[in-house]
């Protein structure tokens, strides 16, 4: 459109009447393949620079913007995918770590329990041993005491018996040395 306006402007500026100079272009400069018409060169400049101008002005920013936008979106998609994957990996890692920790915990608890049980058992055994020893000791002491008591009783009894025997003997034969000796021996044998 602008081109035609330019053409019109050129026409208006031209002093020559329209159509009066009609002729085959290029003939003036040979009309052959190598026609050197500078007008065409000027037209080339005008048209090319107009095209370049319009494209730079309106079109290229749009294309570049669209391309950049798309690139950005793709980049975003890639980034978010990577982020998701990373997040997933992180979660899995966390889970694994958690699981390992739980297992460790369980292991530790089990170990502790085992140790406690062991300790408890030892304690119980030791206690039982001690009690057993205590009981034994007590029993032995009891027996000792019992024996002492029995012996004492025996002594008393023996004295009683001896006295009774002596009474009898005395009644029978009061002054025999032999008898006295016999009594002494008897009592001694009981005390032994």
């Amino acid at each position: 459109m602008t081109t035609w306006l330019t053409a019109a402007a050129v026409l208006a500026a031209s002093p020559a009447p329209l159509g009066a100079t009609a002729r085959v272009a290029g003939q003036g400069a040979g009309g052959a393949i190598f026609s050197l018409n500078i007008g065409l060169l000027l037209w080339t400049w005008v048209l090319f620079l107009l095209t370049l101008g319009i494209l730079v002005w309106k079109v290229f920013p749009l294309i570049a913007g669209g391309l950049e936008e798309r690139q950005r979106k793709i980049q975003e998609a890639i980034d978010s995918a990577r982020q998701d994957r990373e997040e997933g990996r992180r979660l899995v890692e966390e889970q694994t770590r958690e699981l390992a920790r739980a297992r460790q915990e369980a292991q530790r608890t089990l170990e502790e329990t085992r140790q406690a049980v062991g300790r408890l058992r030892e304690e119980l055994i030791a206690e039982a041993e001690a009690e057993k020893a205590d009981i034994l000791e007590r029993a032995r002491r009891e027996m000792e005491r019992e024996r002492e008591r029995v012996l004492d009783e025996l002594r008393v009894e023996a004295v009683e018996i001896s006295l009774a025997a002596a009474e009898r003997l005395i009644r029978a034969r009061l002054d025999t040395d032999e008898n006295r000796r016999l009594v002494r021996e008897y009592i001694g044998s009981i005390g032994g």
Binding site: L11, S14, A20, T21, A25, G39, W43, L47
Partner: peptide
């Protein structure tokens, strides 16, 4: 040819800015 214009002379140069087939 109605769009033809007279060649413009600048110095010894003859410049024909008529609209032609190639234009």
């Amino acid at each position: 040819s109605p769009l033809s214009v007279a060649p413009i002379h600048i110095g010894g140069l003859e410049i024909d800015v008529s609209i032609t087939k190639h234009v």
